[in-house]
């Protein structure tokens, strides 16, 4: 979905959100309450600078608007694959963005992620995956890599991976698989305003993804292994 159409569905035609290059920002009103929206569009690669731009808005929200909820709108092709970004320390910039979102959560801001187009790898780790919880539109795409690329990298036959991915969500891209693994809490379908309202009211603040993955059968071991470590003699 186009970000503008999404913003209109969520916040009405006078939403006031704007795009500066690939960066989205808005101070919007939702149910009469202010909400900070931060996002990216055009499948933006998240580089050093774009990570900092997003972190700036998170920190400003924490400093100037204590408790104001933050909605992260996600559309990224992943981290910027450039030597300059590596030289600058893209991992540090992304960790900084993640730490800023984490600080906001700890200080009582609800932070909700929404994958409205695509979310890949490194671009996703320090946005939707570090929020209180992440949601997705049904037509969105989430992956680390497609099956042909995975076949090349792992040197496994593509048809074998395709066959296995029918029953094991760990192997294949797709929002439904991320829901099954607990990485996405739920899909937003139909009335998007109702979905956001519900997310703001009910999203847990603790990390329940491993538990969800076990209950939904998509990631059966993570929660049990964590518990075994806690119980180990």
């Amino acid at each position: 979905m186009q970000w503008n159409s999404l913003a209109t569905q969520l916040f009405g035609p006078y939403h006031g959100m704007r795009a500066v290059g690939d960066f989205l920002q808005g101070d919007v009103m939702f149910d009469g309450e202010p909400l900070t929206v931060i996002g990216t569009t055009n499948h933006a690669p998240i580089g050093f600078a774009l990570a900092l731009t997003q972190a700036r808005v998170v920190l400003d929200t924490v400093a100037q608007h204590p408790g104001r909820p933050i909605l992260l709108l996600i559309d990224t092709q992943g981290q910027q694959l450039r030597r300059r970004d590596e030289l600058l320390g893209i991992n540090r910039a992304m960790a900084h963005l993640g730490a800023a979102i984490d600080l906001a959560r700890r200080r009582g801001h609800r932070v909700i992620g929404l994958v409205y187009d695509q979310a890949l790898s490194g671009g996703f780790i320090t946005s939707g995956l570090i929020a209180d919880a992440c949601y997705a539109l049904p037509e969105a795409e989430i992956r680390v890599m497609r099956i042909p690329a995975m076949a090349r990298v792992t040197k496994l036959p593509e048809d074998k991976l395709t066959a296995l991915s029918q029953s094991n969500p760990v192997f294949a891209p797709g929002v439904q698989n991320y829901v099954a693994m607990g990485g996405v809490r739920a899909l937003w379908q139909g009335d998007l305003q109702a979905a956001l309202r519900d997310a703001l009211a009910r999203t847990p603040t603790e990390d329940l993804r491993a538990r969800d993955g076990a209950e939904r059968g998509g990631r059966r071991l993570a929660a049990a292994v964590v518990q075994r470590v806690l119980d180990a003699a």
Binding site: S121, I125, T126, V144, M150, M181, R219
Partner: peptide, 26 residues
């Protein structure tokens, strides 16, 4: 980084490590 043989689970796992680490730090 993420183990590409089980990349989807690995990606979520890394973010869980991040959150758990930041809890310890906090």
């Amino acid at each position: 980084g993420v183990r590409l043989h089980e990349a989807n689970a690995g990606l979520i796992a890394v973010s869980e490590v991040m959150r758990a680490l930041l809890d310890v730090r906090a």
